[in-house]
Amino acid sequence: MWRDAVLVAGKDLRIEARSRVATNQVAPFAVLVLVLFAVALDADRRVLEQAAAGLLWVAVLLSTLLAVHRAQGVESAEGTGDALRLSGLDPAGIFLGKAAAVAVQLLALEVLLGVGVVVLYDIDPAGLGTLALTAGAATVGLAAAGTLYGVLATRSRVRETLLPLLLLPVVAPVLIAATRASEAALAGDPLGAAPQWLGLLGVFAVMYVGFGVVAFGPLMEEA
């Protein structure tokens, strides 16, 4: 299973590295979202500073949708999905590999967006350890849930509209928890609330990785 996961993750990341879609389209899109938020909020420093964590994670959520579309689109083109199914790779491994590839892209994106928030919204980076833990746990959960719902919605002509409707309510707790944890980290965690939120993110991540390992096989067979 793990060997298959590494194989699939390597394949997906190589495709992304060659096609440059992530670097040339998804990353600029995410930064553009940050700029648009600032424009919409009238570039008010105080408001931006208060809302920075939430805006960052909304941008991550929107980018997750794009990354998952990419990850599934790669398989639905030219029958490579069938090839993957017939390859004899462990479905759980395929799931872990695809989720890992999405997670790596999201982590890179979060670093970029973090720098963007610091530069554009004038945020003082603090509590970097907590921030890193938050980003890690949230990303694993987002990538796992995204990959799972991606294959659920795939092969449907309404995929582009179905995936957000399916995925966004499910990852709403990730948005809440990641935002609160980031806010707490940036504020120096005066309430000591960050561990609680990190725990919730961890539970979500473990849950969806588990679901994916179990459910990906049956879902992929029929797709």
Partner: peptide
């Protein structure tokens, strides 16, 4: 089943929030 599983997580998230 995925939807039902996320309801308790959602519950704690909004409750704590």
């Amino acid at each position: 089943l995925l939807a039902v599983a996320v309801v308790p997580v959602n519950h704690f998230a909004v409750e704590w929030w």
